[in-house]
Design a protein around this nucleic acid. Sequence first.
DNA 1: GATGAATGAGATTTCATTCAT
DNA 2: AATGAATGAAATCTCATTCAT
Lengths: 213, 213, 213, 213
Amino acid sequence: MARQELTERAPGTERIQRKRGKRVKEIVETAAELFGEHGYDAVSLDDVAERLDVTKGSLYYYFPSKEELATAAIETLGDEWTARLERLAEQHEGGHAGLLRTLLHEHITIAVRDYPAALRLFLVPRAWPTAQADRIKELRGRHDAVFRRVIEAGVDAGEFTVTGVDTTLQCMHAAMAQSPLWCARLRGKARGNAISELTETLMMLVGQPPRTG
Amino acid sequence: MARQELTERAPGTERIQRKRGKRVKEIVETAAELFGEHGYDAVSLDDVAERLDVTKGSLYYYFPSKEELATAAIETLGDEWTARLERLAEQHEGGHAGLLRTLLHEHITIAVRDYPAALRLFLVPRAWPTAQADRIKELRGRHDAVFRRVIEAGVDAGEFTVTGVDTTLQCMHAAMAQSPLWCARLRGKARGNAISELTETLMMLVGQPPRTG
Amino acid sequence: MARQELTERAPGTERIQRKRGKRVKEIVETAAELFGEHGYDAVSLDDVAERLDVTKGSLYYYFPSKEELATAAIETLGDEWTARLERLAEQHEGGHAGLLRTLLHEHITIAVRDYPAALRLFLVPRAWPTAQADRIKELRGRHDAVFRRVIEAGVDAGEFTVTGVDTTLQCMHAAMAQSPLWCARLRGKARGNAISELTETLMMLVGQPPRTG
Amino acid sequence: MARQELTERAPGTERIQRKRGKRVKEIVETAAELFGEHGYDAVSLDDVAERLDVTKGSLYYYFPSKEELATAAIETLGDEWTARLERLAEQHEGGHAGLLRTLLHEHITIAVRDYPAALRLFLVPRAWPTAQADRIKELRGRHDAVFRRVIEAGVDAGEFTVTGVDTTLQCMHAAMAQSPLWCARLRGKARGNAISELTETLMMLVGQPPRTG
DNA sequence: GATGAATGAGATTTCATTCAT
DNA sequence: AATGAATGAAATCTCATTCAT
């Protein structure tokens, strides 16, 4: 019996890994959704499990604790999100204002359309265990860097005016994190307009007058 | 029986009421402090009771549930807060920009110095019972109105430029709600500077170029 | 100071006692009502106090504990009740059937009209402390005795037929105790009819055919 | 993928369901026992859990609240009880008096011997949530119907005499509900005699003279 | 006589976590 | 891979009782 187990170890490991990855992603996204919606403490693993239509026990197969699940949610989302923004920044041609506008618009769109409520995970300042807090800080840093680079470049080029880059970044981030709440009830064109309006308003933070709609 | 009339009907009712009010205020303020600091879910009634140096049971003598206590805390804070801003607005003389700057500065100062965590109570989207949700919404309305009036007046006077008043308000509030987090580690002069910098940055949202520090 | 108290002991003691007696009676009746309605455990002293529009503390001025209050309720009610029935029995002239019918009718009337729900106190078998249990048993005995005497006399006279006097008594008592529940929703004539019908039905327990209404 | 079809979709679901059902039954029966013995309020979930040798938490795995557990207990008991009486009624051959006597005897026997305290759950007028109150009322209705049918049939056949069917039913039930109290201290033959005596006494409520023991 | 305040023991309920299968 | 069951610590809430005034 013991010997059997030794031989039967690795059949189709790859496909299994892929499947596992998909499952993990499902869980993480659902968790992020719920945590973002109600806050970490107000969401029980039962809630997460129920929305996924699995049992609580299953969650523990994929994650060793509730905290790790939340961290994974933040990490995964943050990673993907940042990657999308970084790609955009690389491809972009044109002035700093154009790039910043593009980044803001994309960021808000993702927040509102793809991961409503997920961003709040970054905001709600829970006392994470240090290991996880560090990881989160790093992510936040990478994320911030995308915007920071454009803004600093714009300032250097004399295109942007700011009181302080950090403060500007914080304001942008805070507003974008709340955006899903404001846009939650809008659909279709109205939502698109709201996103554009928010983008233009945030552009003012670097001294760019709003473009006429 | 006739003699009874000489005695006052409700003896000492007033003083008792005052005393009760004072106690309630103590409790509410302590609660607000803790809730604001750690969030609604992270604070147990034991925590509140312990800081007040009474037993859990006593809290229930004054409030029928944790939720009601939290609502009271929010209400008290919001009330006082708004009142302070309204007073400022009334007294102010001078242009719209000056008033808005004053309001923003005061708001951030209160948030950072006096109630370093209270704003989160308004933000974290907990599913309050409707009775309480309504009360909170009303508070936010009053609070919003203070800022809305200045901005609309400034726009009408041609002093301010905005893409949309609602959006502008939302961005301001989002940023201010986060401010205690950014300033938490700062003290003394550094903190004052941070507050001023944030104020100036937010002034840009209505098209006012930052004043040179 | 101590001396003063010795001299000031008894001014108008009598009137005070009477007043006290009235207050006690009010409390006892309200308590009996509530206990009978919802059961001893389901009623809190707060409930009693609120219906009386006094504070919980006041109840403790008159009764040393919840249990004593309940006992007092049972005792007072039982005492008065039994006294009324005993008086009726003494005055009565005529046959055994007539007396039993009168007693049943009166008993049910009191139960339904004067103390709805109070009788259940005797039924709900709580584990009273023995001191109080004894007192209750005695009361119950005196109460039972009124009916027992008529029934035994009737049986001896050959007027009544029963399988066993105890059993008959128990059935009567059980039915009468529930009667307020059945008649609670009836008013005026309808209630009078219901009481009469119940009386006639119980008369059958001693072999008396129902009188045509 | 094709292989999956060979495996059953919900593996062992049936056995699990059966096991769960068994567990639920164990809990419900233990609960019914305790609630019946001491009353709803006097029994804590700790009591139930301890007798089952599990923790409180486990009970909440099966029932969402104490009230639901109690309702389930009542329902289970009532269901089984009524079913037993209905079966008896179906099988019975002979006159109405014989059937009624059988039903009464069986009912009292169950009450006294099998569920020595369950009836109180039906009697003590607790304010159940309406959903559950309805279910209980329905149960009582079914239960009542068994007796009502015999009595009405007997009356129609001229075998029985009653003042009113409802009143008669109420008296019978009131007496039977108390029976466990009266017989609690009796054992063996004495108990059997008490049950028979009570049965005969209740037969008098429909005008049937007692059979000589 | 009566009240408001406070207490503390105990009840119900929640939930992250573990484990056998 | 996943589940159902169980646990236990901690949270919310209730309430009889005490006490200073």
